[in-house]
Design a binder for these strands. Structure first.
Lengths: 111, 111
DNA sequence: CCAGAGTACCACCGTGCAGTTGTACATAGG
DNA sequence: CCTATGTACAACTGCACGGTGGTACTCTGG
């Protein structure tokens, strides 16, 4: 599926994508959106951060096409538009768990 | 598999992991290692970067447990230790292609 | 028309990181 | 030994980014 020598441009696109998701606040925003559509106010309170910060990160996720925005009155409702990002986090956690199991096997092999 | 409210610490770990992979040079290093074990010198020439830069990024990937190092004489041989990173890139590309197809469907729906 | 709520944008600051330069270390060859 | 080769580490610089404060804009309710 991937071309054998990945061109520099594609490497930069992939890297940019990974860096967009690679932020604790944005990961927590996406996590909060797993339950469904949420307003900025709700997300701000759930994360315990400032409204400006939440809006800023949601704007970045929106521009990247990872979330979608729906305006109703004065409130904006955000939702996950790209389900693959959650699978990405799952995969990361899976790799981490595999590494931890290897380490524990080395530390305590006979036990 | 993932806990429902992702704890802040886990979000930071996932984010750090994504940021480590989210660099064009490191993605190209991992891509070059898809063909098998390679020396620093070989990777330096293949990427067209400096030896110091390649060594620096390889050190980061090594510390993260993504690649492995084997020293023989004066040369260091690096190899991919965590195959899931390649699947990660594949997934990113898949999501990008899906988004592109959606866009092209909007731009030229009858053609 | 006015006040308040909800949201987004802008400027700023501090931090972290990518790339470069210089250099130290280890090993093989003569 | 002495030199060359291959690699890793430290310091520096420029730049991008995360968080914050301030503010403008929009819509709703009175």
């Amino acid at each position: 599926m991937l071309p054998q020598p990945i061109p520099v441009e594609l490497a930069e696109i992939i890297a940019q994508r990974l860096r967009i998701i690679g932020d604790p606040t944005r990961i927590r925003l996406l996590d909060a959106l797993r339950s469904g559509e949420r307003s900025v106010n709700h997300l701000t309170e759930q994360l315990g951060t400032s409204q400006q910060n939440a809006s800023k990160h949601l704007g970045m996720l929106l521009q990247a096409g990872i979330v979608s925005r729906r305006k109703q009155g004065t409130t904006s409702w955000y939702a996950i538009a790209d389900d693959s990002v959650l699978a990405l986090c799952e995969q990361i956690c899976g790799a981490l768990q595999a590494q931890l199991e290897e380490l524990s096997a080395i530390v305590g092999p006979t036990r």
